[in-house]
Design a protein around this nucleic acid. Structure first.
Lengths: 217, 217
DNA sequence: CAATCCCTTAGGGATTCCGCCGAATTCCAA
DNA sequence: TTGGAATTCGGCGGAATCCCTAAGGGATTG
């Protein structure tokens, strides 16, 4: 039985490269490609691949949120995060979102195969540099103090989703029709985001999104 | 006779993807790969490929310098620049360094083939967004093709002034009172900026301002 | 000198967004 | 099972933005 893999990256070139690398391994098959987070979720749910290789920076829905949804809607699909930067908070974040692997794009040629091998057997995999980073953050998952700064300021998944769409330039109306919700709901989410994050204009929101690599400038 | 192509990018994944894309065209052959600028220069000089596809961000020697050296040491090799960002000054810079083509990674799947086709016949190629960008920079006298589309799209001083204020998060009203003009005037300037720069939302304007260091994120 | 172009200025009307209120449903964890 | 958080939706009035049109001044050019 072949290992079926989903590849999600917004650059066609990178997808082609990942496909070439992965399919050089016999018995491995890239069963689908996605160019944004929503497409990744949709195809993961529909095709239930063994492994989903997900880039962080993607339009419409970023890799972290996509991971969260994939893990929820297709629990047997292991998610391997592929990213440019090795930020400690990012490793933390994607692991909490349910990813089982984390590989830097620079190390992809060296680590990608072994990472997918691990994940295919439901073993977590962190590329060396990522695990160094992870070891520096406070471990102990499940601690009640994990959301110490939560309460009023922490955005909900839905809010983060909408934050990205807003930062990408969508209006309330567009967000609403895109997500299939009422304009009023979109407005409410937007207002809550602005309130929680203490933004006073949409441009502050964009700069925040750029700084935090939710979108790229 | 096959078209021989050199591919230089520091990510193995991207190189694999480029190879897959390029070699899907019959008669085209990726004769070498390089993972940094020095290696690219060395292999270009030794193998004299028809076209060199060069990434901007590479270790040891960046794409711009690599281009300069390749054009000097192997004049028959046409250089196609491949990059993430469409910074206006960058287009200018690489063209002066001797590149004949400029393609954004986002557009690679669409434009790469036709770009290489052009370059292989010694015709310059700019991807659509890049040429838009190029048309907006102040034309340098003597640079061929610098002013083929300028004028219409370049911002006036007043517009640049207002662009910054908008990017900083000011509303039309605030811009107006800050500059001592009518709100209506501010609105007109804003509309003209959006039109000239082909922005479709204020967030695009902010990202442009961040990229071009008009504001910082 | 008149014609023309560009920059800057501006208004009217329609549309959309925003802030501030309330409220129903679902979901998850205590 | 229950309480709280998350997500959903609506009204209403004022604010902001968008679309279209256009006038005045200065520089350039025929």
């Amino acid at each position: 039985m072949p290992v079926r893999i989903l590849v999600a990256d917004d650059h066609h070139v990178v997808r082609a490269g990942l496909r070439a690398l992965l399919e050089s391994k016999s018995g491995w098959q890239v069963c689908a490609e996605a160019s944004n987070g929503r497409e990744a979720v949709e195809k993961a749910v529909r095709l239930k691949p063994h492994v989903a290789v997900i880039d962080i920076a993607m339009p419409l829905l970023n890799g972290v949120e996509a991971t969260r949804q994939i893990r929820k809607l297709s629990p047997n699909t292991e998610v391997l995060i592929l990213t440019m930067h090795d930020s400690e908070t990012l490793v933390q974040e994607v692991m909490e979102a349910g990813a089982s692997g984390y590989v830097l794009k620079d190390d992809a040629d060296r680590d990608l195969i072994s990472a997918v091998e691990s994940l295919q057997q439901h073993q977590p995999y962190l590329s060396s540099r990522a695990s160094e980073a992870a070891s520096r953050v406070s471990p102990v998952p499940g601690t009640p103090g994990a959301d110490y700064r939560s309460g009023r300021n922490r955005l909900t998944p839905r809010e983060r989703e909408i934050l990205q769409l807003l930062a990408e330039g969508k209006s309330n109306k567009e967000v609403a029709s895109f997500l299939g919700i009422s304009v009023k709901t979109a407005e409410t989410h937007r207002a809550n985001i602005m309130l929680k994050m203490d933004f006073h204009s949409i441009t502050e929101l964009v700069r925040y999104a750029v700084r935090n690599k939710i979108i790229q400038s």
